[in-house]
Amino acid sequence: MKRLSVLAVVSLMLLGQSCTQHTNNRNSEKMNDTVKTEYYTFELSDKVTREKVTFKNRYGITLSGDLYIPKNHGNEPLAALAISGPFGAVKEQSSGLYANQMAERGFIALAFDPSYTGESGGEPRNIASSDINTEDFSAAVDFLGIQKNIDRNKIGIIGICGFGGFALNATAIDKRVKAVATTSMYDIPRASSKGYYDKVSLEERTKTLEQMSQQRWKDAETGTLAYGNCPNPDTLKGDEPQFVKDYFNYYKTKRGFHTRSINSNAAWTLTNGFSLMNMPILSYIKEISPRPILLIAGENAHSRYFSEDIYKIASEPKELMIIPNAVHVDLYDKVDIIPFSKLETFFKDNLK
């Protein structure tokens, strides 16, 4: 892919700089007959209960989550997992599916919407932050650790896609987290600043930052933030990169569509990259050690290099698991491909 096309794709999917102000309701109307507000993209296991919960992060933002609890678990406190992602998704999608699967395997699992997205609080809507999205995981650990049916010394994290990077960052700083796993991991600040495979030049980065800086004047004048288009198009022309087609086939179809998902039906602000592009998150990755890291990526995933790069620089104990023939979004919802048995073993071995 040429450098400029890489930059354009990254801007569209992560930042939105090249988009015009627009509120996209076409898919909401189109899929209204099949997708309701409380719709989940997966079936709740008959071995698991699900309850809505709320908790606050240290910025005072109220986060919304679904707590998945295994039925007939006895009286002993259980190990617990905090789960979020992908970037731009909501808890009714992949993170809820993961929580459902892990609860079947004996963990209490909390799938939550990050700050400013989904059912979680925070104004304005649909913005991301290197700091706050890292903090969201620690807030989830706060919540889990004060539940009577949870052993607070047995808490781990799963981060999916862009929240894989934030999960690693949270684990590095929050020593209460005993183990961390990521699937289809993205380093969102790195991708936002440097593009895929770090192909974006200083000149291109500067141009993007200049556009966002000027947009701040416009937002200040109107008193509201401008938004771009949905990160994923309503239709495909056919000449898009394969990973864009893969995103479409998840977020824009019945397979993964949700009305509250930014990637399905909403948009980031035009200045969303202001925090992401200037605040790297994985500078202290070595400080996760001696706690274990499990990195899972698809063999054919466009994002595979993020996991491989983290594996190279992280300290032991660490493991990189490559799923044969899988692409990035296969690890969002394909339960026959996602290695849940491996995740079960990893956390049972390390949350002791």
Rank of each mutant, 00 (worst) to 15 (best):
I262F: 02
S213Y: 15
D309I: 01
I173C: 06
P231F: 03
H328M: 10
L81I: 12
T134R: 11
Y68N: 14
S192K: 05
R58A: 03
I285E: 00
E123N: 10
V141F: 10
F87S: 12
Q147H: 02
T224R: 10
H73M: 12
A326K: 04
L14K: 01
I155C: 05
L294P: 09
T117A: 09
I188L: 09
V335E: 14
K254G: 10
T269D: 00
G228R: 04
I61P: 11
S120Q: 03
P241C: 08
Q211R: 15
F112A: 07
A89Q: 02
Y227I: 04
E240Y: 06
T222N: 03
T117G: 03
R152E: 13
K237H: 08
S193K: 11
N126D: 09
A139C: 07
K312M: 10
S94G: 13
K52W: 03
Y59L: 15
L7N: 13
A172P: 05
E38N: 15
S303M: 12
R152N: 14
L110Q: 03
T345P: 00
S130A: 15
A99P: 11
I310H: 07
K194F: 07
S193Q: 04
Q147S: 04
T235E: 14
G164H: 06
E29C: 09
L209G: 09
K36M: 06
G164T: 06
L15P: 02
T34Y: 08
G145P: 02
G159L: 01
I322C: 03
G159N: 00
A179I: 12
A314G: 05
E308A: 08
D234G: 11
V329E: 10
F340A: 15
K178L: 03
N72M: 01
S213F: 14
A172C: 08
N75H: 13
R125P: 03
P292S: 04
D66W: 15
I132H: 00
E240V: 11
P231E: 07
A80C: 12
G121E: 00
S261M: 04
D113K: 09
L276T: 10
A109I: 05
F340E: 13
M1R: 08
I108T: 11
N100T: 01
I293E: 08
A220T: 01
K175V: 06
S283Q: 08
N350T: 04
E104P: 13
T259V: 15
N32W: 01
V141D: 07
L320H: 03
P241R: 06
K237I: 07
L282H: 05
L276N: 08
H302W: 06
D198V: 01
N249T: 02
L4H: 01
W268V: 01
A109L: 05
T222R: 07
E76V: 13
K56P: 00
L209M: 15
K252C: 08
L7Q: 14
D131P: 00
S341T: 11
V327C: 05
F112H: 08
Y227Q: 02
Y196H: 12
E319N: 08
D246Q: 06
A103M: 07
D113W: 05
C230E: 01
K36L: 08
L67F: 02
S261R: 07
P114A: 09
K312L: 10
A140N: 04
A99I: 10
N57F: 09
T182V: 11
Q101C: 01
P70A: 05
L144E: 10
S130M: 05
S289P: 06
Y197Q: 14
S64K: 06
D187F: 03
N100V: 01
A179C: 09
D239I: 14
